[in-house]
Write a protein that binds this DNA or RNA. Sequence first.
DNA 1: TCATAAGATAACCTCCAGTTATGATAAACA
DNA 2: TGTTTATCATAACTGGAGGTTATCTTATGA
Lengths: 298, 298
Amino acid sequence: MNISFEYYRIFYVVAKTGNITKAADELMISQPAISKCIKILEEQLGGQLFIRTKRGVVLTEEGKEFYRYIKQAIEYINNAESKFSEMIHLETGTIRIGSSTTLTKKFLIPYLEIFHKRYPHIKIEIETHMSGVLLSRLRQGLLDVVILNLPYHDENDIELIKVKDIHDCFIVGDAYKELVNKKLTLEEIAKYPLVFQAHGSTTRRFLDEFAKTHDIVFKPDLDLAGFTLVTEFTQIGFGIGYATEEYIQDELNSKKLYKLDIVEEIPKREIGIAYSKRNIPSFCTKKLIEIILNKQVF
Amino acid sequence: MNISFEYYRIFYVVAKTGNITKAADELMISQPAISKCIKILEEQLGGQLFIRTKRGVVLTEEGKEFYRYIKQAIEYINNAESKFSEMIHLETGTIRIGSSTTLTKKFLIPYLEIFHKRYPHIKIEIETHMSGVLLSRLRQGLLDVVILNLPYHDENDIELIKVKDIHDCFIVGDAYKELVNKKLTLEEIAKYPLVFQAHGSTTRRFLDEFAKTHDIVFKPDLDLAGFTLVTEFTQIGFGIGYATEEYIQDELNSKKLYKLDIVEEIPKREIGIAYSKRNIPSFCTKKLIEIILNKQVF
DNA sequence: TCATAAGATAACCTCCAGTTATGATAAACA
DNA sequence: TGTTTATCATAACTGGAGGTTATCTTATGA
């Protein structure tokens, strides 16, 4: 069968109103157009849908049954339209973000504020894990977008956007204040007590790689889980720490931490946004990325 | 919103196949037509449905959600079409008939045989009651058609079709065989033992009415529930019975019962088909009536 | 008996859903 | 690396489906 769906909409209105003239009114087309259309529909279906009376039209028994189904169909179509509209206008939906606690606190929050203000009906879900786990969940379609520190070994099914350069540095608290204005080598630093993030973190991997290119192997006194702990232990004088400059602006400004001057240049790193090439980003994912790329907050 | 429903069918096929060219094939329209149509649909919906790639098209997240609803809608439309077709071709459905046991056995069965042979998938339901009850159920839409003995006080919301004349007569068994060739008056008959159907039956009411016009009141010795009992008790010699000639042809032919000759003429009665004017008869109701009216069986 | 309120029919017209032809480009392949 | 293939987009055109207006028919009811 190959009946134009448009006929069903017309049928629906006629059946609903029980009156071709009124239906014509509602559909804003002329009465004869509808008369003809219903006639054609009946011909194509091979049976009568309506009994014509002088007071309008009445559904036949078969027509009633037909109407029941068509009504359902039309409700679904209406739902489809409104749901789509809601999603497009970001009046409904969820965005699932993967990020580290540090990146969330130090990088993401300002963007999320903007996003939430602009699209208050979108639910925001944040998952905190190591980058590797997050990327695998992204690949499975369990996340929409992942915020991570680059470099990351490129995965060909994941799209990476570089968002912002960040710069690591060695830091000390008041206890080692005497080191502040000296230009130190990595070799010299290695002799002091060291307070680093534990193996497994992107930061630590990056630091070890960097040290290796200068034939240094750091043996930290404290392997700490997380960026916050590093700054705190450094601050109270446990030794030399290693952190991202952009994340400790407050502490540097208030002289709780001091940045050391290093002979070897620590290469810059980047914050990246990752999304799956396979799973097309939803409209609200795109909007979040747009916000992050357009407005550089710090 | 006022998007042509026809677009949704096209959208559905494109989404299903993930390929405009293949969809064009399936829909038997050209590829550019579909490209254009999807574009228009996206414009009217105010958002993107598909990502175009060189290998076809992929639904966006929003498109996927949209598709879920549209798919449902289209399934309903397909169901509507096939259900309607089934009903029209009488491959499904139910006919609910009200009738008395006598009318069913003596009148209806041959027609039901034809009907069932012609439309084996239609379920036949028969309800047995007094005519009054049946008509009220007909009026409530609980029955499609009622077979009954006329005359019946006309109801203006019920359509009555006279189908066949029937003729009542007085009958006796061998015990009263001597009455057979005499011409009797009602007055004379009233003196014999009488075997009638009980009050409440149309037959008895008709008989009493008829007697009344000749100032006779019958006082039967046996008030029996049902036509079959009357013929049987008459046959074994309890007295004079009263029955419809057409229903006792067998017994008359095999000389088990004899018809009496009466001075007063018993008016003919009619078998009628009743259906509600309000509730439009279904296609299969019409077919049954058609069968009854076209082919007179006995 | 006239006015009204439906639907059907007829004749005509217009716009848009379709057409064909062609272009652009990424992916597959030789 | 060039060539072929598969796919969607665009442009210009066209015919007929789906619309129009005008008129007819016929129950209903004031």
